[in-house]
Amino acid sequence: MTLILKPVETYRDDFTFSNSAHAIARFPFPFPEDQYRYSVNIEPATSRDPGSVFEHWFDIDEHYRSEMAERARVLEQDPRRYLVMPHMQTASWDALQMFMEHLSNDYPALFSLTRAGDQWHWRNHVLGIDQHFTFGDPGTLPCEPLEFITRQVQGDIALLDQRDNDLFMDAGMVTSPADWSLAFDAGMSFKQWHTPVPMAHELGVFDRALKYLLNIQVDKPVRRLNWTLTINPRMDTSPETFHEWGHDRSTVTAENAGALVHLRVELQFMARLPRSNGLMFSIRTYLISLNELVTNPVWATRLHRVLRDLPDPIADYKGMTRYRQPLLAWLSQFDPHA
């Protein structure tokens, strides 16, 4: 099926972002049952369901132009959203190679890569980029390799250094985080950067997850889904800008919840970076308004039950405490047993 890219829409100010019927149909609804529980829901990232978000390692969808424009805007205002520590150079080139190989192979109409030894030629037909460079030589690119490539892929990217039997957040491009700051978390170990997550530490979730991630092998990536809620289709829900967007949460009513509240799903993907032995952690974010979501009645009923029964600490961590009641009031109309 041909991928049709939309013209640029906005994730701020007038919020013109919306999903086509096709995008709604392929939205990765994250709840397999009527109740949400923490689990190490990691699975091998094998390709499945052609056309779905699970087909390719790096999913490109109709919002490509909009997301790349939004990333450029965020970086212009706050360059600290991108960071690479000096020992992450090999990992950066690994990441560039992984993206270029997969994107050109999976989306040949959008991207192309030709190579003769270390002489590479990359073309991004959507953004009009045509770049000859020497692989491994940062001087032949207009900016650092990780910045160059992550300005061309949807989703936030963190590169994790593996050492001392742990993972460290030592590089990344993070312009659409769900309330975490790369500038603050940089350099932290796996458990350190997960400190703000409630309950899970006590359940031993991070011990099991870390052990699993440390042993990811080359070409055997894994993935998991995570979710939260966002008011308006706002990509940049960073702590850096919280004082500008946090008040949106007070504007939700039982009447406007369908238009304002969005389910935000992260498709997290973790792959071994072959030569550096680091890990790529990509966080691909999908937004859907509840008005769009309830066009699927099974999703509508289930979302109501999940949010109604969510433990308070998790609801609080996900930032929904202030508007949970009006939201549930609105959602209950789609639950026949409510």
Binding site: H87, R163, N215, Q217, V218, D219, S276, N277, G278
Partner: peptide
């Protein structure tokens, strides 16, 4: 089997 690394060079 696919390559695996139990003896990596310390990055720091």
């Amino acid at each position: 089997s696919r390559p695996a690394n139990l003896f990596p060079i310390h990055t720091l």
